[in-house]
Nucleic acid binder design. Sequence first.
DNA 1: GACGTCGATGTAAACGTTTTCACCAAGGTA
DNA 2: TACCTTGGTGAAAACGTTTACATCGACGTC
Lengths: 361, 361
Amino acid sequence: MPAATTIKDVARRARCSIASVSRVVNDSGPVSGPLRQRIAAAVAELDFSPSEVGRSLALKRSRTIGVLVPSVTNPVFADCLAGLQDAARRAGHAVLIAQSNYEAGREAEAIAPLIAERPAGLVLTVCDPASSEARRRAAAAGIPTVLLFNEPAPAVGTEIDVEANAGGGAVVTVDNRGAGRELAAAVLARGHRRLAFVAGRFESSDRARARFEGFRDALTAAGLPVAPPIEIDFLDGADHIDLTEVLARLQPTAIVASNDLLAIGVMAALRRHGLAVPQDVSVAGFDGIAIGRLIAPSLATVEWPARAMGTAAAAMLLDLVGPRGGKPTAARTLRLPHLIRPGGTLADAPVTSCLPLETSP
Amino acid sequence: MPAATTIKDVARRARCSIASVSRVVNDSGPVSGPLRQRIAAAVAELDFSPSEVGRSLALKRSRTIGVLVPSVTNPVFADCLAGLQDAARRAGHAVLIAQSNYEAGREAEAIAPLIAERPAGLVLTVCDPASSEARRRAAAAGIPTVLLFNEPAPAVGTEIDVEANAGGGAVVTVDNRGAGRELAAAVLARGHRRLAFVAGRFESSDRARARFEGFRDALTAAGLPVAPPIEIDFLDGADHIDLTEVLARLQPTAIVASNDLLAIGVMAALRRHGLAVPQDVSVAGFDGIAIGRLIAPSLATVEWPARAMGTAAAAMLLDLVGPRGGKPTAARTLRLPHLIRPGGTLADAPVTSCLPLETSP
DNA sequence: GACGTCGATGTAAACGTTTTCACCAAGGTA
DNA sequence: TACCTTGGTGAAAACGTTTACATCGACGTC
């Protein structure tokens, strides 16, 4: 293999010291016209591009951002990642990825390789920010961290961590609980009175929990009983959701799922029971993934700007890191707005199925 | 920030040289029992984990794999990426990502940050392997490369590149053209005679081109005319596909799309025209994305093991790199099998709509 | 004419590892 | 006894950068 050309090769070719080459490449410090030209020519001829690893070592900081998501196969995280990667690239940073597979126990080992690369910062979506070992490790290593989609939580650990986690608890997220309330309210507004909630496992997602809490708020406010949520494996659970029991017991006229992927899985499950969406049962989800728009009936959901959230997370992290170690300028908590997206899966409650239920006086 | 602990800190604490620490950490070279214990203790107490950037510099090779895909928002690439990341992690490697947004012109700049990190190798899905500037750059930098999903193509460039691109043209892919043939044959078998093909732009995807060629093969073999394909922007084109013209001109009873995302977009477009799938028009795609199973009607498609392809690409790359620079042992071209997945979107051709067509004698 | 300033350049240290080499002691063989 | 091995250890070089510092000449000012 033709060993990559180094700054020394360029210096030799331009008949100067490596310091001058560095000055030209980074445009730091003064270099005379003629020498600058010779160096530029040498760089071009040798196709020199400086080694980030050498640079990282010298600078004690790399131009790399580490990202941990539950899984890149959930479109909402893929969107985030796409936005984040794009923003990072524009800022001259590379992106390292890791996945926890929605298991809190795997988070720490998942980000170990990221931390070993001494990244400029980390963007994490963890199962539970309050107890996240991964978050603690990042703080202990002194790596600035932005939480994505998680609920804001107090800075981890003790004194050293507070200092380490510059900006203590930076986060780009949405109002999960509020969205849950609004979505449930929208469902209630259509006359539904028996609602079920299908969620990814709460221990895997504070988002799912917060959305359910919002859902519960709305039902409680309407004076309705709240059935316990049905918890499903996030990773492949959507493929074969079993609604037999809840359909028999609760006979819901509407089912809210904690994300769109699960909502689509719920629709498939209902179909297996011979139930039509939305004629027999309405369905709604969270995330606003693109596919939800294209399917029939289109998916009623809560839409948030996933891609922009990735972009924002990158921006916040880079601000946190600071161009010159300066103090961060922007806010440390960003809650992006959401929007109830109406869809064909949400319709008025069927009149008939209200009958067998005990009616309120 | 508490500066990360280094090998020197450990050495000081264990009262020995950094060489011995390195020997213990990497289990290279002999260390006496007592000293080994002291060092292990110091490592544990200081929570030392070696800096990959220091290591990379010394070794002149990093434990990082760079991946370029058109976009992580296409589930088939997300699946690949998930598998690849998982395999890489198990092998102690980190994964850097880049996206070309399906634009050949962006590939080179997209992988520049990856190359700058001096990765152990690259996994690329490019628009056109034969003319890919990104591939040429990687070869010029002497970085082993595996193509993913692309058609195998001759090694790029001239002599030096052949040497550089160890294993000249390693590739993990599928039989795109064969799959196109088989899928078209399956559609023809249902009695369809007027077929349209909706593709991502050919200049963005040799896969789309190969699949169309297979489609054409089958139609030609059946003595049918082949209409020119309808080319769509990959990135957001699926959201608003315009079929007005092709529906008016060709009046197809079946539409094949070059991937599942587009196929789902085609279904939405047909619906806007008031056409029912599959009663009026059948639809089929390629990739076998998970969502295709859950929607109604379920999507007929060609399924390949996307996740396993990512895993395989990682394995092949690591083999190419070699644990100790040894010669690669495994095959350099891997074509994984595919499977026609029947689905509700593909049904018999409607009898009525055969009438207005000129029938073959 | 002495002195300071400033621009242009080079030298060398530092960053955190791995690894080669040298050294030393202990033990075996001739 | 003289000699080689062999296990254990440390010193130091190397990897590719950045940057603090030193040097030197030219120029301006008093």
